[in-house]
Amino acid sequence: MSSEVTPTSKPVKTTGLHIGEAEPGCRKVDPILIADGVTRTFGGLKAVDVDHVEIPRGAITALIGPNGAGKTTFFNLLTGFDKPDTGKWEFDGRSLAHVPAYRVARMGLIRTFQLTKALGLLSVLDNMKLGAKDQSGENLFRAMFPFLWRKQEEEIESKAVELLTRFKLDAKQTDYAASLSGGQRKLLEMARALMSDPTLVMLDEPMAGVNPALTQSLLDHILDLKSQGMTVLFVEHDMHMVRHIADWVVVMAEGRIVAEGDPYTVMENPAVIDAYLGAHHDSDLGVTDTEHVEAIKELIDDEQ
């Protein structure tokens, strides 16, 4: 489906992000997010076990991996929505360990959700306004005196309308968010995340359930974030999209980081192929290795 979409322009890839070999846990020239020894177990299952990973600043990084690889759990840990068993991680030089989710968001690390969380019975405009930070009217006592927050409210509203126009939702601003389609909710959630001027935007499967017509516009919006100086980290299953917009790819499998690299070379990495198809996929039935690798490449590579 997505292969039929023609990119409006070839995105400019950011290169030279890492130091040394492109291997799991390799160092970056300018990391914005560094995680060290982060583990999380659910009963006997080690959902996340990341030794070391650095996310490069000012680039679009994709976090990929098969279902159950621990990508969303890792997301939740980084954003304070879940507590890890061990480990420390820092964002922009500030430690994020044991910081509650709302403080993480205030630091400039804003996330979206795999299942969109549009606030249904709030208008689209109210959804947007909620995203702005440091609102003085959000204090209960100041809220009683509208003259204290009216001016800020107007500024927030004009910013919200501007963003909604960019995301082509301005015609919907007085509607309940519940009346939006699935794709429009994804757009709304992304636009809402931008209300707080984040430095790092974490998108959990931004393309899930979005029709092909909207895919291109969503891709452009993500590329836009980078051109405005934001860092993007996203989880995605659509390999076409990953290759199209990601500057760097981190591959997770069974809770661990198994490979890193730029999107073209990482797909060739045997560890990635193992992750998607099992470690012993090429050791039976007497078929030669190369045939399998070819078949796998065809499977992963839906671009050509």
Partner: peptide
């Protein structure tokens, strides 16, 4: 008083919590 605070940004956060508290948390509200 209720009418005043429910149309303020405070009331917006409160109504947002009713709809989905995780989303509101992700936007930096306690």
């Amino acid at each position: 008083l209720t009418w005043l605070i429910m149309r303020s940004p405070w009331g917006r956060v409160i109504k947002g919590i009713r709809e989905d508290e995780d989303a509101v948390r992700a936007l930096g509200k306690n």
